[in-house]
Design a protein around this nucleic acid. Structure first.
Length: 976
DNA sequence: CAGTGAGCGAGCTTCCGCTTGACTT
């Protein structure tokens, strides 16, 4: 019977280790972290619900005490571990030797509460020797390291959960901010900004094919040409241009050839003799690349196999689980002795001893903030299986990835590649007498060494090797050759390339941001939040990413510093080393300490008031400067605006593709406007448009159109056909007559409905508008309308409880909810699974039941009755007691709702009315035109009809604008 | 601002890092 329980992080690792440990040991895995801060309200234990800090999972008022919970999907597994722990004589916590691993060990200790001795053990390689050595040298849990992890976890939570809501309020709901994703997004945005500012330039040069006396040819390029004064001048190259102007950088005196000049020079040089003025040969050597770590594996997976990061990691995970490779989430280039020996044996066997590196190669730590808990990624075992031998065993992605890992690992113990590089300069003269200088360079590989096995970035080392060779004939100084053919070539300067998944991971890793286990998911997050989309390999940031980045850069600049994580790591190292403490560190970050530290919470409080949502939504586009066109991100996506002109930006348009010309074109063709054809009956044009109230179609080109009709929710503006448009335009439809009145089927702002005189009834589906008959319509009108007098839908379930009103489970707009007629409570995820008991229903209702909102001026019937004893005897409390209760508590109207529910209920109507003086303070939320309009009408008492012409608006538009402006002002005044 | 007739329980979104299945298409 096993007596010692060993717990590691990964199940695959547990299986391997169990083999090495044998009898007396049971090995189980934690499957990663077992506890964490609660993710959302549903995870918060009852006891802490309602606490101000519960949402954060950190008691920020009491030393940032974390609230840890075992997540629901881990509960069963933790129970199993607890049972195994109870049966063991001894427990060894063998989680990874890094900050997170130490923390997992500590959480296991806390959660399992073992009654037997507990040891901590670590190893960096899964080899028999390493594990036996580790068993022999146990230690205790390093609480300082655990503190450092808790500080990291808390900081990430505070950053993410406090800054994200700023974005919800100021940019768009459901956005997110975080230490890693916000910097990643910023990187994409900054690169795109460079591309948006970029001005392209063209330059010309000559490609000359030189020919030696014995008819060997080689390529050479023109580098210098004599000017009008006979002096030699260097030709301009791409790097001589200023990317911001497209002109030569100041101080650069290089000669810029026009196409005509280049062609004339080419003609004049063809067939002319050239002299070798210098020939310089230098030997070079190249060392193999270090073995794979997660980031380089993802990069090469992308470059050589075309895999996205997730695809590479999926294949690697399967290889690891089946024992073909070592652990795939690592930041260490270290190889175990076993691996070095295996690689060297294989080099000798497959390529011969001359290809072996004379000494075993050791690769030093490379990545910033690397924690090096694991080996490099390599074939598993003490003898590597060759890819060839696995052809039948592995398939598809797995085989290709294994092949790549095998090659890289073997190559890293191979000899340097050796070769020579040759640089030759030539001089000559055109037939017109211009002096020219040319240069040619070549590269010869004398001994390929590791390049036999692995060439970075290439799928085929053989072919890549040939590409790397650009042999030149053995040219000697003074030798005469001929300019056999001369080709003028035009070049354009290129903007900096966008990031790809692989290059972004590389950049993040370079800055020490993110961990091997998260690289792939970072890419997922920024795409899921709509900050970036993939176009081919490129990651293109969205306009939302621009708005978010601008907000963070302007108002939380230190949070999106590229060095933020690096500095955090230094501080965490201090905590891990016992030189600093978690609580003061978090206090400085979150609350500030006598003016020191980031002081995030006070900063957010200040910025919430200061950040102007409208200006944050306005994105600076250098190419539109001076056009008066502004780009904004709005509720319905990005759009452009110039005065009253508006146009949506196409979804698939990258920010750097928006030029002034393109913007004008989009504005001149209002967004979404698309002629569909002509109506065969009237001969009038039918046009699909995107309007203030959503997509619609019009008939006729007059203003207003002859007819218009909204699209149904199932219709798509881009794919709408003429036939469908005509069908929509056939509405409203006369259904028939009933009781002497016409019954019409219409599509309105609340959806499809029937109208008879002043009475109306909703329809359940849009398509029903075309189908409903007069009998069905009459039946509908016999039923009470939705609203007053309406029969409530029967409840899904009724919970009868003794001594109180029954609790009903009902289905509502926002999902299932409970109500007892006085209070309502929406069910949370997992609560509506059909297993709800009456007791639980009561608990939920008591715990978080809310009184339904009352209409302005109305108070709760029950409380009104209670406050009016005269009415107490009445069987049903009257709803018109509002005045009574309001009068009694009228003064509390503008106060914060008190904890006393009675006071709360009787507080001011939900929609307060504001005086003009109060509204005026919020004029900033309006456009200047709206401001002028509102000021003229409300301050000077003028009529819209009178003011509109002065503002260059037609009266109808101005009235609409005034209405909207008034809404916005009231919203702003209510603080929405 | 193309034009239309009501009224109805709000509450949640979000971070980074460590790990796999259990789900469905």
């Amino acid at each position: 019977m096993p007596r010692t329980l060993v717990i590691v992080e990964s199940p695959a690792k547990a299986r391997t280790i169990e083999k090495y440990l044998g009898k007396g040991y049971a090995v189980e895995s934690s499957i990663g972290h077992i506890r964490d801060l609660p993710k959302s309200a549903a995870d918060i234990p009852e006891k802490y619900r309602g606490k101000a800090w519960a949402r954060l999972g950190l008691d920020v008022e009491h030393d940032f005490q974390p609230l840890y919970v075992v997540s629901p999907e881990k509960k069963a597994h933790v129970a199993k571990l607890r049972k195994m722990a109870a049966e063991a004589d001894e427990i060894i916590l063998a989680t990874d030797d890094d900050r997170e691993g130490e923390s997992i060990a500590w959480h296991l200790f806390q959660e399992l509460k073992p009654k037997v001795p507990v040891k901590r053990m670590v190893f960096h390689e899964i080899t028999r020797e390493a594990i036996q050595a580790a068993i022999a040298a146990p230690r205790q849990i390093d609480t300082n390291l655990v503190e450092a992890q808790e500080a990291r976890r808390a900081l990430d939570r505070l950053y993410g959960y406090e800054v994200s809501p700023v974005l919800w309020k100021k940019v768009k709901p459901k956005l997110s901010a975080g230490r890693v994703q916000s910097v990643a997004t910023r990187m994409l945005v900054e690169r795109e900004r460079e591309r948006m500012r970029f001005v392209s330039a063209s330059w010309w040069d000559l490609l000359v094919t030189g020919k030696t006396a014995d008819a060997q040819t080689f390529p050479a390029r023109l580098t210098d040409v004599s000017g009008p004064d006979g002096q030699m001048q260097k030709l301009a190259l791409g790097r001589d241009f200023d990317p911001l102007t497209g002109r030569l950088k100041s101080g650069v005196t290089a000669r810029l050839l026009t196409e005509a000049e280049a062609r004339a020079l080419a003609d004049g040089l063809t067939g002319q003799p050239l002299t070798v003025t210098s020939a310089e040969e230098k030997p070079f050597t190249q060392r193999p690349y270090p073995p794979f770590i997660t980031s380089t594996l993802q990069q090469e997976g992308s470059r050589k196999l075309g895999f996205a990061a997730t695809r590479t990691m999926r294949a690697a995970q399967r290889l690891y689980e089946q024992g073909y490779i070592t652990y795939m989430r690592t930041d260490s280039t270290n190889l175990s002795t076993e691996a070095v020996t295996a690689a060297r044996t294989q080099v000798t066997q497959m390529y011969g001893p001359t290809y072996l590196s004379p000494q075993p190669r050791v690769y030093a730590k490379k990545a910033k903030n690397a924690q090096e808990a694991h080996e490099a990624i390599r074939p598993a075992g003490s003898a590597f299986r060759t890819p060839e031998s696995l052809r039948g065993e592995l398939s598809g992605d797995e085989w290709r990835l294994y092949d790549l890992i095998w090659k890289r690992t073997v190559a890293c113990q191979m000899a340097d590649a050796r070769g020579r590089s040759l640089r030759v300069r030539l001089g000559g003269q055109t037939s017109a007498g211009e002096q020219v200088a040319l240069s040619a360079s070549g590269r010869t590989i004398d001994f390929p060494g590791f390049l036999r096995a692995y060439v970075e970035g290439s799928d085929d080392p053989g072919a890549a090797l040939e590409d790397r060779e650009t042999p030149l004939p053995p040219l000697k100084e003074g030798e005469r050759v001929t300019a056999d053919s001369v080709k003028p070539e035009g070049h354009d300067t290129q903007p900096p390339a966008r990031y790809t998944e692989a290059s972004l991971v590389q950049a993040l890793e370079g800055a020490g941001i993110g961990r091997p286990s998260t690289y792939a998911s970072i890419l997922g997050t920024i795409q899921d939040r709509g900050y970036a989309i993939k176009k081919g390999q490129a990651l293109v940031p969205s306009w939302t990413a621009f708005a978010t980045s601008a907000l963070l850069e302007h108002h939380f600049s230190s949070l999106v510093d590229y060095d933020f994580t690096a500095r955090m790591e230094e501080d965490l190292d201090d905590i891990a080393g016992g030189r600093a403490q978690r609580v003061p560190y978090l206090r400085r970050f979150y609350l500030g300490d006598h003016g020191e530290g980031m002081a995030l919470r006070p900063l957010i409080d200040r910025q919430m008031g200061e950040i102007d949502a409208r200006s944050i939504a306005t994105i600076s586009v250098p190419r539109l400067e001076g056009t008066g066109i502004e780009v904004r991100v709005g509720r319905y996506g990005p759009y452009m605006e110039r005065g009253e002109q508006k146009a949506n930006l196409p979804e698939d348009m990258a920010p750097d593709e928006l030029t002034a010309g393109k913007a004008e074109e989009l504005l001149s063709r209002p967004s979404g406007e698309r002629p569909l054809g002509t109506d065969p009956d009237t001969g009038l044009p039918v046009v699909a448009r995107a309007g203030r109230y959503g997509p619609y179609v019009t008939l006729g080109d007059t203003n207003p159109p002859v007819r218009s009709a909204s699209l149904f929710p199932t219709d798509d503006l881009d794919t709408l056909t003429l036939e469908r448009a005509l069908k929509l335009l056939s509405l409203p439809r006369l259904v028939g007559t009933s009781g002497g009145e016409e019954v019409w089927a219409l599509n309105g702002k609340f959806g499809p409905y029937l109208k008879r005189g002043s009475d109306s009834r909703s329809l359940t589906s849009h398509e029903h508008l075309f189908e409903v008959g007069i009998q069905e319509a009459e039946a509908l009108f016999l039923q009470p309308r939705f609203g007053k007098g309406r029969v409530a839908a029967p409840p899904l379930q009724t919970f009868e409880l003794e001594g109180r009103a029954p609790i009903l489970l009902k289905s509502g707009r926002f999902g299932p909810y409970l109500t007892d007629g006085e209070r309502n409570a929406t069910l949370r995820k997992g609560e509506d699974d059909g297993t709800l008991s009456a007791e639980r229903a009561l608990e939920i209702l008591e715990e978080r039941g809310k009184e339904p909102k009352k209409k302005p001026g109305k108070a709760s019937p029950k409380k009104a009755a209670a406050k009016a004893p005269a009415r107490a005897g009445a069987k049903k409390p009257a709803t018109s007691k509002a005045s009574t209760s309001k009068a009694s508590t009228g003064k509390t109207a503008t106060k914060k709702p008190a904890t006393n529910t009675a006071a709360k209920k009787a507080a001011a109507p939900a929609r307060a009315t504001f005086t003009w003086a109060q509204l005026k303070a919020h004029l900033g939320v309006l456009s200047s035109q709206e401001q002028q309009l509102v000021t003229a009408t409300r301050e000077q008492g003028r009529k819209v009809e009178e003011v509109a012409p002065e503002l260059g608006l037609d009266v109808k538009k101005a009235k609409g604008m005034a209405l909207q402006a008034s809404k916005k002002l009231n919203q702003a005044a209510r603080g929405e």
